[in-house]
């Protein structure tokens, strides 16, 4: 099989997972609350006629199975329906607005957690003594259980209020404006050569991405450490040494071996990243999908909540597909 066919094959395997998640979300959000419109309005004192009109407008008057398929097809076409609360507002527009912010946060957080976790694990794995290894393991378990808002708010207090060097929330300072090209401010500002805006965007993203990145870095540190230990104890390394290859060069090769199981882990890590992003965004007033979701929860805007959650389901599926492909590219033993 060629790589293209392998990707197509894996993609086919992902579809049932996405469908299942979609079904699950559909049941949870459409079926469980009874009549979502009433739940959203928070009252039953609404004229029968008005309720029916509203239901028709939102497509909620059709049989459930029809809603199930129509919603799926519309969703795939990019139509996510309309908000229940702000009448006539297409949810897809909102999401298109908010998504780049979440993506930017996710990328920076991933970079942070990878650099912190894999870096620490690599150094500890290479070290000869056991002290650093113990610290790395403890680091792994402690960072994992940090409550994101607790850490985030503490950092805001420290750097925002007490030291006054970094902003406590938002993506940009008032008065700074960046033309949206990719929607990622740190990239757009560079593309436009506006270094002032770039510095401002960086200042805003440091604390949120550090918070999320630190929390996610623990598993990376532990995994890297244990993989390094395993590979360093393997015969491959003895054989390299027997050939007179320098230790630095060997460490580089070992690192590649250590990285492979981590790539597999990236997919799982991504689920944590999405959950963490919702908390991080709320903590830092970061105008992304997470804040949007929490906003909509406050107003019980079921159609919007459903759209975001289903989008997350799709993202999880796509990322797990990408992980598989990355794994196949990095490890020649995977046959495709």
């Amino acid at each position: 099989m060629g790589l293209a066919r392998y990707i197509a094959f894996r993609a086919l395997l992902i579809i049932p997972t996405i469908l299942l998640l979609y079904t699950l979300v559909f049941i949870v959000l459409r079926v469980l609350p009874g009549n979502p419109v009433l739940a959203a309005l928070g009252t039953k004192n609404i004229p029968e006629e008005q309720l029916k009109a509203l239901m028709r407008e939102l497509g909620l008057d059709k049989p459930l199975y029809q809603q199930y398929f129509e919603y799926l097809i519309n969703f795939l076409r990019g139509d996510m329906g309309y908000s229940m609360i702000i009448r006539g507002r297409p949810i897809a527009n909102d999401i298109a607005d908010k998504f780049p912010a979440t993506l930017e946060l996710a990328i920076w957080a991933m970079v942070m957690s990878f650099a912190l976790g894999v870096g620490f694990g690599y150094v500890a794995g290479k070290s000869r003594g056991t002290a650093l290894k113990h610290i790395a393991r403890l680091y792994g378990s402690i960072t994992y259980i940090i409550f994101i808002p607790a850490l985030g708010l503490f950092l805001q207090l420290l750097f925002g209020r007490w030291l006054g060097v970094l902003p406590t929330g938002g993506r940009l300072s008032p008065g700074i404006y960046i033309n949206s090209i990719t929607g990622l401010y740190t990239i757009d500002s560079l593309l436009q050569g506006d270094f002032n805006a770039f510095a401002d965007a960086i200042k805003h993203i440091i604390l949120p991405s550090l918070t999320l990145g630190l929390v996610l870095s623990g598993p990376f540190a532990r995994l890297t450490l244990s993989n390094m230990e395993r590979v360093l104890g393997s015969k491959i390394v003895v054989a390299y040494r027997a050939r007179g290859v320098r230790e630095e060069v060997i460490a580089r090769h070992v690192f590649k071996h250590a990285l492979i199981p981590i790539v597999t882990y990236l997919g799982l890590q991504f689920a944590l990243l999405l959950g963490g992003a919702v908390l991080t965004e709320t903590t830092f007033n970061w105008p992304g999908l997470g804040t949007y979701l929490v906003d909509k929860i406050m107003y019980r805007d079921y159609t919007a909540i459903q759209a975001v959650v289903i989008l997350f389901a799709f993202l999880v599926g796509v990322i797990s597909l990408m992980t598989d492909v990355a794994y196949a590219l990095i490890d020649p033993r995977v046959r495709y």
């Binding site: 393997s234 015969k235 490890d331 020649p332 033993r333």
Partner: peptide, 16 residues
């Protein structure tokens, strides 16, 4: 001086 090992399956780096 060089060495040839028992198990060629585990001594060549499978990733390269």
């Amino acid at each position: 001086v060089s060495m040839v090992f028992q198990d060629p399956f585990t001594t060549l780096d499978p990733l390269r």
